[in-house]
């Protein structure tokens, strides 16, 4: 469902140019669970942003669900981001002025979901993630683990085919981290395609496939059997 060919990202700031990604080629099948690991600065986040259509590569091609994304215009990209991809950030990125349920309902605002149904779905999703009793708390009234669960609910609510997470447990204590990981386990068991960038060896250990980056290149791509 996802395939990259020769993906390249060069940042040029003034006279210095940084080759953050250098010829990344791999594909991910439907329902696969992949961890991307590697030392700091090796290009993991950059790669994930490109997968999430938040950033554009300076070279190479990306196919998502049979579409070459370089052919999409701004509006179509926005639709892809909203419908096919759920993105989870290390620092949650919730909207601070909105309560949990509004945050979760937000992605549906950009599509033809009726307002009443949106709130119903958001509530259901929060309930599934154990946040049913925190519907009307704003982010500042929630713990880190709770915020990340709201963020995951938001990423899932449009039923995306691809779930991307950039160090989802990076800002959490180990217990909250465990809980979040359990959610990923469940989603994986349901057949969701998940790509997680992580420093955490215990996450990587659970993954059936681990891609190790180094200096913008794939050092190792191994599948456990």
């Amino acid at each position: 469902m996802l395939s990259l060919k020769g993906i390249e990202k060069i940042y040029s700031t003034g006279s210095v140019s940084v080759r953050a990604l250098d010829g990344i080629t791999f594909s991910i099948r439907e329902g696969e669970r992949v961890s991307i690991i590697g030392p700091s600065g090796c290009g993991k986040s950059t790669l994930l942003h490109i997968l999430g259509l938040l950033d554009v590569p300076t070279g190479g091609s990306l196919m998502l669900d049979g579409t070459d994304v370089s052919t999409l215009n701004e509006t179509e990209l926005a639709q892809f981001r909203g419908r096919k991809i759920g993105f989870i950030f290390q620092s949650f990125f919730l909207i601070p002025s909105m309560d949990a349920i509004s945050n979760v309902a937000l992605p549906m605002m950009f599509y033809d979901v009726p307002a009443a149904e949106r709130l119903q779905k958001a509530q259901k999703m929060l309930g599934r993630l154990g946040m049913g009793d925190r519907l009307h708390h704003v982010p500042s009234e929630l713990s880190g683990g709770q915020r990340q669960r709201v963020a995951i609910a938001r990423a899932l609510v449009n039923e995306p085919t691809l779930l991307l997470a950039d160090e989802p447990t990076g800002n959490l204590d180990s217990r909250s981290g465990e809980e979040v990981l359990k959610i990923f386990d469940e989603l994986s068991a349901e057949g969701k395609t998940i790509v997680i960038v992580t420093h955490d060896p215990s996450i990587a250990k659970k993954s059936p496939r681990v891609i190790r980056l180094k200096d913008g290149k794939i050092e190792k791509d191994e599948r456990k059997k």
């Binding site: 701004e74 509006t75 926005a78 909203g82 992605p107």
Partner: peptide, 16 residues
């Protein structure tokens, strides 16, 4: 600005 980025990441179009 950050909020605009968030909205875009969850599917808001430029027009929205």
């Amino acid at each position: 600005t950050r909020e605009i980025g968030i909205l875009k990441s969850i599917g808001a179009s430029n027009e929205a």
